[in-house]
Design a binder for these strands. Sequence first.
DNA 1: GACGTAGCCTAGCAACGCTAGAACTTCTAG
DNA 2: CTAGAAGTTCTAGCGTTGCTAGGCTACGTC
Lengths: 192, 192
Amino acid sequence: MAEQTRQTRQERLDERRRRILAAARERADGGGWSTVTTRHLAETIGYTQPVLYSHFPGGKSEIMLAVALEGFVDLTQRCRAALGRKRGRRAIEAVAVAYLDFGREHPAVYEAMFQEPIDAEFARDDTRAELRAGFDVLADAIGDDGEGTATEVFWSALHGVTLLERAGRVRPRHRRRRVADLAARFAADRHG
Amino acid sequence: MAEQTRQTRQERLDERRRRILAAARERADGGGWSTVTTRHLAETIGYTQPVLYSHFPGGKSEIMLAVALEGFVDLTQRCRAALGRKRGRRAIEAVAVAYLDFGREHPAVYEAMFQEPIDAEFARDDTRAELRAGFDVLADAIGDDGEGTATEVFWSALHGVTLLERAGRVRPRHRRRRVADLAARFAADRHG
DNA sequence: GACGTAGCCTAGCAACGCTAGAACTTCTAG
DNA sequence: CTAGAAGTTCTAGCGTTGCTAGGCTACGTC
């Protein structure tokens, strides 16, 4: 009985934790992280502010980090799925589109993934592992078997396109052209 | 006499405006925009908060926009100077280095230039003009005489490298390699 | 010398992230 | 069945933020 109760307790905690993260992600993607307040978050899950801190002692920063971590998993999976067994330009284009789609669909999650506050004092190893996985997909896409510089630049380009598109600094309708341009420049076959 | 007085008045206003922007830029580059508060800003210039709003009715957002505008002018000038009469890879590398240097030396100014709050309800035309000038330098650097897609991608790559370097998501010491990689991929001569 | 205007400050609002400590519920032990 | 321990939630409040209403002071003008 005690076991059963303890199980249920843990399940309820997990459930509530998920609800907090879902609420934060949803509201952030809708109106930006500045509109995500601890008060509103607490109200959404039907509890008061201090309850949030029992789940995330680090407060809002730690919530953002948790959302970011989920985001890395999601983004990596999407890119991996888009890549499949493709090679060459088709591989690059597919991964680029998947990457940019994610950035557009979840602007706030993406922001949490790359904005500075992440590098707080919290979890370090998880983040590194997930980052590594994402890096590897991009390396596979462009066929980078070197020491990673090409992947770094490719990643930077995707990152830059994502942010400039969002900021409206780049023509929205020319997205396909940008993807094609990117694929042409990073295709391995241009060397041979 | 009235003319003289009015002149002096305007000069004092301009002077104070400059001091506000300088204080904001300096503190932001030192500790991020979150450390730039209207109270501290007011204290720095030796006045109280409401005075800031007589110069920038839009408050902190408008101050950030003003800093961003100055930043665009500065960045464009630097890139133009770095470009000089160079052509090909050397031109691209020079401009890339100038761009990345600016982003590293003035992280907060750069952030203000590309972060969303900028697109507020304030000045629109100034921003567009300065953006255009910056875009043109990059187009000249890579020799883009097409419809601008290549420049958009080049710009995105520089933007991405700037941010990923700052966020520590990319190996700091490999910067020269990234610049070289970038130059190789965007050099016009790869077409012929 | 009274008046209008401009500039500046005092004081305060609502909202923010976050926390101490009271109040309540649930489990455990005698 | 009861008394205490343990855990959970809430009330209330601190300090800080961006921003603003309204009063005070000093100036130029009739």
